[in-house]
């Protein structure tokens, strides 16, 4: 795929793309809660939601109605402004991160569509050449949501939750950066398109960089605060951590942000390590990318059903004493191999 042959990207195209991302990812994030409940239930030999609609599919709508109609409570001694804005930070950064990620293949809107006919919609809303840096930065700043939310709500569980957010942030961020540095060195670019093109003909990046892949997956779990590292809101220990005092749609925004982040991590892992959106054997590219993202989503649920979670100090120990040295060694070896 040669970049120069593509039609010009117009503002209209980007706006259409943004709306598509927002609508589709928000819908998938909502649907993800259903999938999560079903898969977790099956793994524990339960049925999961079954009563609302066929196979419980309309549970989604029921939950949505419930979230929207719940009373929006702001605790008395909370810092109201920060309390109100924190969930927006989480959700917004999650979606902004998706702006620089290739989500669907590019297409041109049919000519007969009024107003927008013939507009070219790119696969990446903002094809900046430091895409990876942007996405990782955006996702990292998303943790300001839990941090501020926990501190603003005048609740001890919230405070513990935000303290844990800080610990988590300090732990995994170094591993994410260092682990993805090795593939970046090989490709020599920070753009997702270059990563994708690099793997069009050759092997998947995971073959060259298995260690980096594993480290990135581990850090990704911490980044999306999924189960082995879901310290922020671990219900069994700290009620709900940073979301203890939240209700209704504000709570829902945290949720949507978390699921959007899961999808983003899935996309990054697929594009950087698992061959991106290229044809594989006889399977067309768009099915491949959906399969990869779906599998990484499933893997996160699978892990949640299987593994216990670690303590905050264990996470910090793991990240700084085990994973970071491994990442550095990996970078060293990669560098040596590239030099030779």
């Amino acid at each position: 795929m040669d970049a120069t042959m593509l039609p010009e990207v117009t503002a209209a195209g980007v706006i259409v793309k943004a709306v598509i991302i927002l609508a589709v990812i928000a819908a998938i994030a909502g649907f993800g809660t259903y999938i999560e409940r079903k898969i977790l239930a099956f793994m524990q030999r339960r049925l999961g939601p079954t009563h609302v609609g066929p196979f419980g599919l309309l549970q989604l709508a029921a939950d949505g109605i419930k979230l929207f109609t719940k009373e929006d409570i702001i605790p008395q001694h909370a810092n109201k402004f920060i309390f109100a804005i924190a969930p927006v930070i989480t959700a917004a950064t999650a979606f902004i991160a998706l702006a620089a990620v290739p989500v669907f293949p590019d297409f041109t809107i049919w000519e007969w569509v009024p107003f927008l006919g013939g507009v070219f919609v790119p696969s990446i809303a903002a094809d900046i050449n430091v895409g990876i840096l942007f996405v990782l930065g955006m996702m990292a700043s998303g943790l300001y949501g839990p941090l501020l939310a926990g501190m603003a709500q005048a609740n001890k569980w919230g405070i513990i939750g935000s303290a844990r957010t800080a610990i988590q942030f300090l732990s995994y961020e170094v591993v994410t950066g260092l682990s993805i540095l090795a593939p970046i060195m090989i490709v020599g670019s920070l753009s997702f398109v270059d990563f994708n093109n690099y793997q069009t003909d050759g092997l998947w990046m995971v073959v060259y960089q298995p260690v980096a892949f594993i480290l990135f997956i581990i850090a990704g779990f911490a980044e999306t605060n999924r189960t082995p590292f879901d310290l922020l809101e671990h219900e069994a220990e700290i009620i709900s951590g940073y979301v203890t005092e939240y209700s209704g749609m504000r709570w829902g925004l945290f949720f949507i942000g978390e699921y959007a982040n899961m999808i983003t991590i899935g996309i990054i892992a697929s594009v950087v390590f698992l061959g991106g959106y290229n044809d594989f054997w006889f399977i067309p590219a768009w099915i491949m990318i959906i399969l990869k993202i779906a599998f990484s989503f499933f893997f996160m649920l699978w892990v949640r059903a299987s593994w216990p979670h670690v303590r905050p100090d264990q996470l910090m120990w793991l990240c700084w004493k085990v994973l970071m040295p491994l990442a550095v060694i990996n970078i060293l070896i990669t560098g040596l191999v590239i030099m030779i």
């Binding site: 099956f42 030999r45 049925l47 699978w302 059903a305 593994w307």
Partner: peptide, 26 residues
């Protein structure tokens, strides 16, 4: 070790879905 854990949950899921060993009583 970790993958054994994953294997157990996957096995249970297959048991539940395809081998009619769902635990739930409606």
């Amino acid at each position: 070790e970790l993958f054994q854990g994953l294997g157990v949950t996957l096995r249970e899921m297959i048991n539940a879905l395809f081998r009619n060993k769902m635990h739930t009583t409606k």
